[in-house]
Design a protein around this nucleic acid. Sequence first.
RNA 1: GGGCGAAUGGCAGAGUGGUCAAAUGCAUCUGACUGUAAAUCAGACGACUUCGGUCUACGGCGGUUCAAAUCCGUCUUCGCCCA
Length: 378
Amino acid sequence: MTHIKKISKSKNNLSRALEVSLKSRKITTPFFMPDATRASVRGITNSRLDETGIRAMVVNTYHLFLQPKMDLIKKAGGVHKFMNWKKPLLSDSGGYQVYSLIHKNPKLGKITEDGAVFRSVIDGSKHLLTPELAIEVQFDLGVDMMVVLDDPRPNNIEKKIMDESVERTVRWAKRCKIEFEKQIEKRNILEEKRPLLFGVVQGGLHTDLREKCANGLKEIGFDGYGFGGRHLDEDDVFLEQIIKDTANYIPDDALKFALGIGTPQDIARCFAAGWDMFDCVIPTREGRHSRIFKWKDKGVIFENDSKDFYETVNISNSRFKEAFSPIDENCDCYACANHTNTYIHHLFRAKEPLGAQLVTIHNLRFYMELMEELGKSV
RNA sequence: GGGCGAAUGGCAGAGUGGUCAAAUGCAUCUGACUGUAAAUCAGACGACUUCGGUCUACGGCGGUUCAAAUCCGUCUUCGCCCA
């Protein structure tokens, strides 16, 4: 059976809408998944998440593996039951933690051909996360979509080293795919009930390495392919060409997952380049840090490099002390329907967690509206 | 009435002759955040400035000293104790 069906596409034939059949339910692209790294979108209950229109979210293999550990998740009956979330879940492999922890602070672990050696920040215990273990853990989590363990590197490293990262990423992807098929057989999972598996395209700023990586992964065969590493150059300039080229190297009938992207305009540009699904900490983390996303003009979303379709404001700024109006008059989110800028400003000043929760809810609703707008264009 | 102690920047609170425009925390103002080591982190926070400095500041006033938030006298206020 085929899990992915094209339902429409744009005139330029790049952006499109797909219907994806997952084990828990169907989902259409484009979609954005908030990060529920440790099986929770920080501070927000499931019912409030539902109200924002969220259709899927991302949990993290590495974090859940360390805490509460897989024995407990298995006892709970999988991560869906554990967190009582009925809609689709995608688990990230922990590959980014290789980048984030090891490359930023080598003391916290190292990468070997076998896998990534981590020291737990929870209890100091040592762990070896192999590609095989990453897949097994994700089956134990019981998610709808899983990602291979990859080897991301900072964009500014030598091309030779980036090439090694690409080759390792492909070798690890192969091991993941083999383990994936083994697990399906071992667990007796029917084709229509199996999770989808994503490879991750690395290669940094080098288009030829992105192509090499994509081709290597294509040969193995995945349901979807992710854009790995950072999508911005050293000056935080959006890597437009690599984003476009990488999307083109991926088979058209596969899902294209822009991992960790991004700001509203980055998402819009990626979608226009053919990417179907997104996840990012921005709406939640920045919401907790009091930054609010607001619409300015939905009509100019696709106008070249435009940030003009939205703005961000910091609700803890003094100008909101006496702003007795909702964050956004036109927003239908819980925060805007019930509370004023003044109140939310006060909550942040008073360090009341409700402030962060309300802004998180609002920002997630903003991101959902962005996805609705993107969806309308195809 | 007598004795002792204390008064420091918006607040709390270090400092007890020079390296003090004065630690630290809070408050205030602003910024950052892109597959969450992040409800976190960073900067600013007396005035003026040609950015080299200049001025005004540690309860008030007056001394000592080359030099005082720091020592002395006195006044004011507050606290504690004895009558």
